[in-house]
């Protein structure tokens, strides 16, 4: 059968295009304009070419914050994805506990990011916070305001607490979409729990898990508010991730050119990651 191609349908996309133009494309163009100029305020700009890009790409400060960002993203993905799947597998498939579990899982997602940071800041303080007090009480020297290891532990724990629920909900939706016939067939074959997971549940969750990895990757790669409120990027610069470094350069030091060049590089990295994930997802669909 011949499909009718009607390109006039693309005009239906115009309203979205206009919206995206005002909230994304025009600001992005402005950032690109800033990234090749120097300014001292008052709308006065001086063309500098690619100087800021060169400075950012060869700066040890940028390399350090990028390395921290990548390590953070990999760590939270390595924890949140398996943990989210494990919790989703442990949740009841039917009965009165299902809505209770779903609401409990959704609760952390409803809390604003700055509130999460403030909550964990108080919760983890060694003198007045429950977590900090308990850890010190069992003999571990813990103070996230002055120990880099403790600060990283707290930031990772906070992110796991805040965002594992998202993976759980997505994985649970994937699990719920598996028809009972698959499980009945597995029972007839006397399949072990591992085999059911490996050959039925995991392949059926592939798509939602790819979305979960994509969302968590992008969110964690752009994380700002929670660690900023919790540690302010410290102690020293040990939890200064890319976005915190970017804001420090733009607002703290008023280096708009460098901050804009960092933004463009940051944007390109996120774009590449999104494209890779999108390609992986659609490639699986074709197969």
């Amino acid at each position: 059968m011949n499909k009718t191609l009607n390109n006039r349908a693309w005009f239906m996309v115009l309203p979205v295009l206009l919206l995206v133009a005002f909230n994304a494309i025009i600001p992005l163009m402005t950032v690109v304009n800033y990234s090749v100029q120097e300014t001292f305020g008052n709308n006065l700009f001086f063309f500098e070419g690619f100087k800021w890009y060169e400075q950012v790409l060869t700066s040890s400060r940028f390399h350090a914050s990028l390395t921290r960002q990548i390590i953070f993203t990999l760590v939270i993905l390595a924890i949140e994805i398996p943990l989210g799947v494990a919790v989703a597998l442990a949740m009841p498939r039917s009965g009165p506990w299902v809505p209770v579990c779903l609401v409990l899982m959704a609760l952390p997602l409803l809390i604003p990011w700055n509130v999460v940071g403030a909550m964990w800041n108080i919760f983890a303080l060694p003198d007045i916070g429950l977590l900090g007090y308990v850890i010190n009480a069992i003999g571990i020297d813990y103070n996230f305001t002055r120990q880099p290891g403790s600060a990283w532990f707290t930031v990772v724990l906070m992110d796991v607490w805040h965002w594992t629920s998202l993976v759980v909900l997505l994985a649970y939706a994937g699990l719920r979409s598996i028809p009972d016939a698959y499980y009945q067939a597995a029972r007839i074959d006397s399949a072990s729990a591992w085999s059911v997971f490996r050959y039925i549940q995991l392949p059926k969750m592939r798509r939602v898990l790819t979305i979960a990895v994509l969302l968590r990757f992008i969110d964690s790669f752009m994380i700002y508010t929670e660690p900023f409120v919790l540690t302010g990027g410290g102690p020293g610069n040990t939890t200064t991730f890319l976005s915190i470094d970017l804001v420090k350069a733009a607002l703290g030091e008023f280096n708009l050119g460098i901050a804009a060049a960092m933004s463009v590089i940051y944007f390109l990295m996120t774009l590449l990651a999104c494209w890779c994930f999108y390609t992986l997802m659609t490639r699986g669909d074709e197969q």
Partner: peptide
Amino acid sequence: LSWMAWTWQTATFF
């Protein structure tokens, strides 16, 4: 549009 800080180089690029 002065706040967008256009230059002819970036305008050419876009």
